[in-house]
Amino acid sequence: MHDTSNISRGVWAGHCFDITTWARHADETRGAEWKDVSEEVASEIAGIWEAEYGPDWRETVCNLWYQTYGR
């Protein structure tokens, strides 16, 4: 890909994603500060795809997927 960002660094790099309930999370973190970085990460991912496929990347990727798998 043509993206020039440092994808190996960021708020999410090196972390794993766990699916859990809110109650379990609250119990395990015991009130430790937690920040939802979903929007920030989604924006970074969109920038990477835009660098590769241009500003209409969503449509382009959907069309490529359909041409490959949709028939």
Rank of each mutant, 00 (worst) to 15 (best):
T60P: 01
G14M: 00
E50Y: 02
V41F: 10
H25A: 09
S43V: 08
W49M: 14
H15N: 11
D36S: 13
E44M: 06
A46S: 13
V11A: 10
E39I: 07
H25R: 13
E44C: 02
M1I: 04
D36Q: 06
V61K: 12
D27F: 13
A42W: 06
R71K: 14
Y66M: 10
T68L: 14
A51H: 08
A23S: 13
R71Y: 08
W49P: 00
T68V: 00
A42K: 14
V37Y: 05
Y53S: 05
R30Y: 05
C62I: 07
W49T: 02
R58N: 03
F17A: 08
E59H: 11
H25N: 05
W22N: 09
E52A: 15
A42D: 09
R9F: 03
V61T: 02
E52N: 11
I19C: 08
N6S: 12
D27V: 06
R9V: 03
T21I: 01
T20F: 01
A26Y: 09
V41I: 10
A42Y: 05
T4P: 02
A23V: 06
E59G: 14
E40T: 09
W34F: 13
A51F: 01
W65M: 08
G54V: 00
G47D: 14
E33T: 10
R30M: 04
